[in-house]
Amino acid sequence: MGQFIQQLINGLTLGSVYGLIALGYTMVYGIIGMINFAHGDIYMVAAIISVTVITLLAALGISAVPLALMVTLLVVMAFTAVYGWSVERVAYRPLRTAPRLAPLISAIGMSIFLQNMVQLTQGARVKPIADMMPGQFNLFTFDGFTVFLSYTQLMIIVVTVVLLAIFTYIITRTSFGRQQRACEQDQTMTALLGVNVDRTISLTFMLGAALAAIAGVMVTIYYGVVDFAIGFVAGLKAFTAAVLGGIGSLPGAVLGGLIIGMLESFWSAYYSPEYKDVAGFALLILVLMFRPSGLLGRPEVEKV
């Protein structure tokens, strides 16, 4: 029982991170109908930048945790958003009217480029940082097993919930959200109505990158180690989460992330850690067989 609740907390934390990255996938997919293959690497870039920023802040003597956290988040989000913008500008925009697979290949190229760029400029070694928020709440003890919730875990869960609320607000209530949804439906018509489609798509990429940046900061603080290769697996899982939840749906992305995160932590704890990646994919295949649009996705009616 204690073990179960502990895994629930761990799964929730991991799932929140996947959910944050999945939000970026789902937003970009929603607006241009393409898998942003470089999104996992955007997250990796963010994690690497956050190592630099956290180290820099420590060197400058800024030790108050809330301040350091805020500064790190803002700085990393800003820089990562520029990366998101550039990825769209270089690998997607020139190919907007190209055959469907062309942008996919350019995005895979971008993913390879980003990984190797980071490896070259920041080194291939694993980068460790000190625990920024040590400490935990010991919730209760059950059969000699103390269930805990670390401050970092709490922060990750809270940040995810808050962000989901903010983003749902942006998409459903603001003018940008309306423009974004209009672009999803029909780009040409949206352009004719005087909306700057290029700008809307760019902004979507930047928002997605900013979300990945938050996930990157969180993971850096949570695990304390980061390297240039973390993007692929995280991206894969997050994309799985986005599809599982129903691509295009924001709550679906977070739900998918949580499910994948829970599945992984329970599977590792009770079954075998080796096959945890397999479990996520197997679940995805199963769900898609019965609900081809994912859990919360809108079923697509084929227009004949």
């Binding site: 190919l95 062309a102 971008m110 993913s111 390879i112 480029f113 190797n116």
Partner: peptide, 17 residues
């Protein structure tokens, strides 16, 4: 590999088909 990735992007942008 850096150049490889860049080449993939460039070829696709140059000849999307």
């Amino acid at each position: 590999m850096l150049l490889f990735g860049a080449a993939m992007i460039l070829i696709m942008v140059w000849k999307p088909g």
